[in-house]
Design a protein around this nucleic acid. Structure first.
Lengths: 349, 349
DNA sequence: ATGAAAGCGCTAACAA
DNA sequence: TTGTTAGCGCTTTCAT
């Protein structure tokens, strides 16, 4: 039994408009009328029909968040924070897993979700900036994560080159000589490419050679990929004495691989990751990492979305840089000074 | 610039109805007409307005999945599988994080998402069966996870008593004498209660006493909770020689705590978890666990949803039991025989 | 095989 | 302060 404004109006003995006003908290209603309407609403257990409302207003209150992989703790945490942050704006977040599929990512960005969503937040793996540009999105988009070129939409990302350089320098400062790097280069979007660049940069600045055999691309960003790449590294006659993993998940896989080979972290090999996921606090050894300021990402995203949504359509798109921190834990610094992790370096404000 | 059926109709020189027919793959249309319409659709880049459609048909193609915590790898994996499984049905999954908040869970179940969703899948932490009953949901609901009483909706869950008993028996078979259990009893829904019951059952069946001091409820199901509870356990003069953690995440926290105390797993303390999350394959030691058949949960859920959605409204609600398996890895069996995990016992079909 | 018209539940504009 | 009416874009009879 569908109950609509009309039914409520009849029961309360008022017009539809009045009911609508009450529902929408329109201020100028006499107290008694409001009470009567509210009573009718609750007795009939009336719930506004969002579809009808959105058909009328063009707003659904739905924001899409499209991520390559919900199972990645980093993205899961981000999703969780987004949902929270959207609350005060009155938005619901429709989480969408693309699997890094370019077609899928394009579709979402295009709002192919059929005008059901008011805006979308995307962390594309393979969609290129060009894609976004071509699509000429019908609704606001906020792009998250690495991107090579500047584009026509707002963009929030950590400065990966700088962060990767800091991570590598941390290993250099520790006196490590054979520093490896692992991380996939799949997709068009260059998370790995950029981090690799920072890695090479640090090495060159330190007057070292970049050794090709110490770079393991692998394919993917999960534990299994870190495990496999590390195993490949360890099969070399002279194994590395440090590994910079392009994310924490791979670093955890690396820890396991090293453990299986009977080597010790950080004594034989120091390991550092990227993302600062919760798991890194409980692994043995705990994981050193680059910690992007997730709160910044989330609040910035939602405030941008809000600004785009109500007004200012020709407010020119901007680039925002996520602050980050290097956190040194047992996997680079050892267990002796642990207790509290040491924050060594901070990124930009 | 909104483009609707009308615009397409005008351009193609046909009526709105004809365009609608083409869009919905109505079979009886002349080939030339169809071509003309299709051409018009693509030149105008027409996209059907879902809100309008759903206003008319009462269907949105949206299924809500409400979970207590997206950051929990178990739920994240489930969410991921659900999204995939929904694809062939043509549904989009709206993932919703309740934080275990009862009000929130009730609201979602009630379809307070304002008739925007066609059905919901809920894994409630605090919502009781009574809640669901009272609400008399306007749309199909599939309930996941433990539930104490039978209720008015379909329900899918692992037999936790039996699974917990198996886990405990595994530890008993290993010759452990002081077997502890950790897991929160927060919320009304009895995940922990049921698993505790299975634990006690196994102990009693083996002619052992249940020792109160070996049971650490804690509050939560995350790594931190497992860590804290285990630390509490280890402060006792005679620490346990085995711990059954009510989920894997806590078990990982336990591993860390034991490691910090300088004890070894499984030599000093054997640890087993519940859920079979990916992380358990890469921890050191790898984690023994109860592995519920997630594929079963997901396919069963969607097929139930489908049946409810198109027809059979008075098909009586059923209970379904998720098959499970006990997987013994290093945390109970030790590293020597590892390589491949040993599947020791299987649950019901 | 195609068209005309009604109406899903709501809000915005205007009237009273 | 409240009521009337039109129409958002679509599908669904019912005609043709």
């Amino acid at each position: 039994v569908r109950v609509g404004l009309k039914d409520v109006a009849t029961l309360a003995g008022v017009s539809v408009k009045t009911v609508s006003n009450v529902v929408n908290d329109y201020p100028f209603i006499s107290a008694p009328t409001r009470e009567r309407v509210k009573a009718a609403i609750s007795t009939l257990n009336y719930r506004p029909n969002l579809s009808a409302r959105q058909l009328r207003t063009g707003r659904s209150g739905l924001i899409a968040l499209s991520l390559p992989d919900i199972q990645s703790p980093y993205f899961a945490e981000l999703a969780s924070l987004m949902v929270q942050e959207a609350q005060p704006y009155g938005w619901m977040v429709l989480i969408d897993e693309t699997g890094g599929d370019r077609q899928h990512e394009r579709r979402v960005a295009a709002g192919i979700r059929d005008n059901l969503i008011d805006g979308s937040i995307a962390s594309p793996l393979s969609m290129t900036t060009a894609d976004v540009a071509v699509l000429g999105p019908a609704h606001p988009i906020v792009l998250l994560g690495e991107r090579l070129e500047a584009g026509p939409v707002d963009h929030i990302a950590v400065n990966s080159i700088s962060a990767a350089r800091d991570a590598t320098n941390h290993l250099i400062d520790l006196g490590r000589r054979r520093i490896a790097a692992i991380g996939s280069i799949e997709g068009q979007v260059g998370t790995a490419a950029v981090r690799l660049e920072g890695y090479c940069l640090a090495l060159r600045e330190a007057g070292r050679r970049v050794e090709r055999r110490l770079i393991q691309p692998g394919n993917g960003f999960r534990r299994a990929d870190g495990y496999t790449s590390t195993m490949a590294l360890l099969e070399q006659t002279k194994h590395p004495d440090a590994i910079f993993c392009f994310n924490d998940l791979m670093a955890l896989g690396a820890l396991r691989a090293i453990h299986e080979r009977g080597l010790s972290v950080p004594d034989d090999i120091a390991v550092i990751g990227f993302d600062d996921i919760d798991a890194g606090l409980y692994s043995s050894p705990t994981l050193s990492t680059i910690a992007p300021d997730k709160a910044y990402i989330v609040t910035r995203t939602m405030s941008l979305m809000s600004r785009r949504l109500d007004g200012d359509p020709d407010w020119t798109p901007q680039e925002y840089e996520t602050p980050y921190t290097l956190i040194a834990r047992e996997s680079t610094v050892g267990a002796d000074r642990i207790g509290n992790a040491h924050v060594l370096q901070s990124g930009l404000p």
